[in-house]
Simulated assay, not measured.
Amino acid sequence: MLKHCVFLNFKNNVSEDEKKDIMTGLTGLVGVVDGMTDMTFGPNLDFEMKTPDFDYGFIVTFRDRAAHLAYEAHSTHVEMGAKLVAACTGGAEGINVFDLET
């Protein structure tokens, strides 16, 4: 199993509705992309005060790397990914990704 963890530094002017639209688009791929089994998202609670710049994130669960690759190539992911880059401070620099095999 693969956990795809994405941490986002949204620009200050990105509305909650814009964030929700992007997350809803990506979540809609659960059950569409074979092997994409779950996605959760929400604001960073940052209890330890270590990541104040990354205010939002999501975690996707994939059966394996092949499912992750199918997600990466899917047209909805490409579209939502472009919206994420545009919505984050510094573009792609405002996005951190951490993939864990569990």
Rank of each mutant, 00 (worst) to 15 (best):
L2T: 05
K3S: 07
K3R: 08
H4V: 01
V6D: 05
L8H: 02
L8W: 02
L8T: 01
N9G: 02
N9D: 11
F10K: 02
K11G: 02
V14H: 11
V14A: 07
S15C: 11
S15P: 05
D17P: 01
D17I: 05
E18M: 13
K19S: 02
K19F: 01
D21N: 15
I22V: 14
I22A: 15
I22E: 01
I22H: 04
M23H: 10
M23K: 04
T24H: 11
T24M: 09
L26R: 01
L26F: 10
T27S: 12
G28M: 04
G28P: 03
L29H: 08
V32D: 00
V32H: 00
V32I: 15
V32T: 13
V32Q: 02
V33Q: 06
V33S: 07
F41R: 02
F41K: 08
F41S: 14
N44S: 06
L45M: 07
D46I: 03
E48H: 03
T51I: 03
D53R: 08
F54P: 12
G57M: 02
F58K: 06
I59Q: 04
V60Y: 00
F62S: 05
R63Y: 06
D64H: 05
R65F: 06
R65W: 03
R65V: 12
A66G: 02
A66H: 06
A67M: 07
A67V: 03
H68N: 12
H68M: 14
L69T: 10
A70Y: 00
A70V: 00
Y71F: 14
Y71T: 00
E72K: 13
E72T: 07
A73H: 04
V78N: 05
V78G: 07
M80Q: 15
G81W: 10
A82R: 06
L84S: 11
A86Q: 13
A87K: 01
A87Y: 05
A87C: 09
A87I: 06
G90F: 11
G90H: 11
G91E: 15
G91L: 11
G91W: 12
F98S: 13
D99E: 10
D99R: 11
T102H: 08
T102W: 05
T102Q: 08
